Structure formats: structure tokens, C-alpha cells
Amino acid sequence: MASKTKLCPCGRGLPYAECCEPAHLGNPPATAEALMRSRYSAFALDDDSYVLKSWHPKTRPARIEPDSRLRWTGLEILESTGGGLFDTEGVVEFRAHYKDHGKAGDMVERSRFVRSDGKWVYWGPILADGSLSNI
């Protein structure tokens, strides 16, 4: 199916070509939530390069190791604060659904996003106690 008609994995209900594909092709998302959605789509589409590129250089791992038996199956945005056009930071809480070796599961994360060189980037998860992880 062509990307013009294929629905985007991020769950907004838009075609991939109109949703997260522009970010994956180099057009920076305008909000922290849009970046979160594009990162989820990149995970779902095995676009490790985009995942790393959209991570802040101070917290980015050298590489990520995808698991071929893990499939991302859905995304829910639970809360989004800040992260708008005029903000410098934002927090997005989400639930990502997956199948791991055929078994369904989900993960919930509160993620911090910051602007770096004028673009939104993923900083890292906010831990249960409110502190930032030392990725």
C-alpha cells in the first residue's frame, strides 16, 4: 500500500504521508507531542536512524538494539503539557501497545522534550519520583 493511503502508526487517523512521514524525511515536528508521535511511528516502522536523530545529544545512546519479535501496535497520548510553538520544554505521557513474541502488552511513560537548535528533541523519561532518568 502506498504511503499516501497507508494510515500512520501514531494513531491520529491520518495517512502516513500527511502525518509522521514528513518528520521522518527531515521536516521537524512543530510540537513536543508531534515529535512523540513521530518517534513512536519510527519505532513501529523500524526507523532507528530517526529515533536516534530525534534524541537529545546529551542523553542519546550510541545505538539502539531493535527486537525483531517486538511489534508496536498502538499509541495513546494520555496527557501533553507545554511543548507548543512558543515553549522550550514539554512533557508527554503516553501508553504504547505492543506484541512481544506474540504476547500483548503496553508501557506507560512520561517523557520530557526540549528544544535544541530550535527543534524539539526527546530528552528522556521522567521517573515516578519526578526526577529525570540518567539515560
Results as ranks from 00 to 15, higher is better:
125 P>W: 00
89 E>L: 08
30 A>F: 01
129 D>H: 08
33 E>S: 07
65 E>G: 06
46 D>P: 01
33 E>M: 06
133 S>E: 15
117 D>L: 05
3 S>D: 15
99 K>G: 06
73 T>N: 09
132 L>Y: 08
49 S>C: 05
6 K>D: 06
78 L>F: 06
85 L>G: 02
20 C>P: 06
9 P>C: 10
7 L>W: 09
128 A>Q: 14
69 R>H: 13
63 R>K: 12
45 L>E: 15
103 K>I: 08
112 R>N: 06
89 E>Q: 12
22 P>G: 00
111 S>G: 11
48 D>A: 14
54 S>E: 06
99 K>W: 00
54 S>T: 13
60 R>T: 05
104 A>I: 04
49 S>F: 00
101 H>S: 12
71 R>A: 10
60 R>S: 07
121 V>M: 14
99 K>F: 03
31 T>H: 09
51 V>A: 05
94 F>A: 09
134 N>C: 06
98 Y>A: 10
2 A>F: 01
124 G>N: 13
52 L>I: 07
39 R>P: 09
98 Y>L: 12
29 P>H: 01
68 S>K: 15
129 D>N: 13
46 D>T: 14
96 A>I: 09
13 G>E: 09
111 S>Y: 12
47 D>P: 02
117 D>T: 01
5 T>Q: 10
71 R>I: 11
78 L>C: 11
72 W>K: 13
107 M>R: 04
130 G>K: 08
16 Y>H: 13
131 S>E: 15
53 K>D: 15
63 R>H: 07
72 W>S: 09
62 A>W: 00
82 G>N: 07
53 K>S: 15
32 A>S: 11
103 K>S: 11
81 T>N: 11
55 W>M: 04
24 H>C: 02
129 D>K: 08
69 R>W: 03
125 P>A: 13
